[in-house]
Amino acid sequence: MTSSVTASPAAAIRRIRIQVNGQEHECEVRPNRLLVDFLRYDLGLTGTKEGCGVGVCGLCTVLLDGQMVASCLTLAVFADGGEVTTIEGLAVGAELHPVQDCFIEYGGFQCGICTPGQIMAAKALLDDNPTPTEEEIKEWMMGNLCRCTGYYKIVESVQRAAGRLRGAGAGDGATARQGPAGARAGRLAAR
């Protein structure tokens, strides 16, 4: 396909306003800048990773206006006027978000490469549904691949985080809504 109108590089640059982790940015970007690259290379927020680059693996998951999206398939210009939350935006000072804490405490990550995407997906889930069943967690998280095969621990970490977010002392996530595998994971963790 040939271009009938010559793309002028100067004309192509767009000015966008975007709030990332609560901080306002006004930037010039080319339309072909992907959100993942904008975050990593223009803003230096390298917590968001790119894996497959085709929207399948979940590494690049960020929240755009509260909804999780694949930043590898999102143009930065799509986020103009919007709010983006990345893994760097979850902790408050030195205090980690409960989802982050639970991934650490319950072994939700091994090598760590999928972890920022897993945690952002888990946060989006718990924002949407504070009391997910094990089945709902699996269905929601199925687009986040872990090649260390740490899925049991990931599911458990999300269950624990759900419990912690519902309020301290709620059995740390070991609730009646847990399925058999969750209960098994709970027993393993108790050892």
Binding site: G58, Q67, M68, T74, A121, M142, G143
Partner: peptide
């Protein structure tokens, strides 16, 4: 269709 992340967009 695909995953929640894709369906959101």
């Amino acid at each position: 269709v695909a995953t929640v992340r894709i369906r959101n967009a």
